[in-house]
Computed example of a mutant assay.
Amino acid sequence: MIRFPAFRTSRIALLPLLTLAACSSEQEPADLAYGTVQQMMANEVQPTADVYWGAVRFESRLEPDGSVTEEEFEPKTDAEWEQVAEAARKLQSFAVELQTQGYAEGRGEDWLVFAKGLDDVSKKAEQAALDKDPDAVFEVGGTVYNVCSACHQMYPPAELETAAGDAQSS
């Protein structure tokens, strides 16, 4: 048997590097396309939902003279309707992303149910926009809101932020 003293020394030198690599891989978060859940919600989902929700709305304002001004808003052009449909498609893609292992890991089965619910309602939201049906956009927008609110009751944004901070400090 031939002995290689250099190999023994190399193994000893590699041990701390392997230990360091093992520790750092445990601290690395899963591949999250949009950052933490909190970041994804704040930077992507909320602004996109706001586009959808803002497309069809009714505003009532009290004027300085005491009169009330009422105004209805809805898309008028094909381009405006396309923006609404695109917002719905983006919500659907976020819903699919929320179902990936990186975002779902460590959360209950209900997480997947909520994400699937957002996926389903986003398809309806897109169809309402493609149909250029302001009443349907408004109604489906309420359902989108309800799905989001139900998820936030189970996974409060503050707890998601804390969990993300805990994961990053591990």
Rank of each mutant, 00 (worst) to 15 (best):
Q38V: 14
R107A: 03
Q127T: 00
T9K: 06
Q153D: 04
F114C: 05
A136D: 10
Y52N: 01
E86I: 01
E109M: 04
G66R: 03
E159G: 02
L15F: 14
P29T: 07
A79M: 08
G66D: 12
W53M: 07
T36A: 07
T100E: 13
R3V: 14
N146Q: 14
E44H: 04
A6C: 12
K123Q: 15
N43K: 15
T9V: 15
S169L: 14
V121G: 01
A21E: 04
E80I: 03
L98Q: 08
R57N: 07
E109Y: 04
L160G: 07
Q27R: 13
P47M: 15
K124W: 00
V51R: 05
D31P: 09
T77V: 07
A88I: 00
V113D: 13
E161D: 12
S170E: 12
D135I: 06
A88M: 02
W81E: 06
E70I: 08
A33E: 15
A49E: 06
S169A: 13
Q39V: 07
A13C: 11
E59R: 09
E71G: 05
D50N: 09
S60T: 11
D120S: 13
A128W: 11
A125I: 02
T69K: 06
G35H: 14
A128L: 09
D78W: 05
T9S: 06
K123P: 00
G66P: 00
A164N: 03
G141D: 06
V137L: 03
G141H: 01
S24C: 00
L91C: 05
S170T: 06
E44N: 15
V113L: 14
T77Y: 05
N146E: 14
A167F: 01
D120T: 03
E74H: 09
P157H: 06
E139V: 01
V140N: 10
P157T: 08
E70R: 14
A115R: 00
E82K: 10
D166R: 11
L15A: 11
A55W: 00
D119F: 10
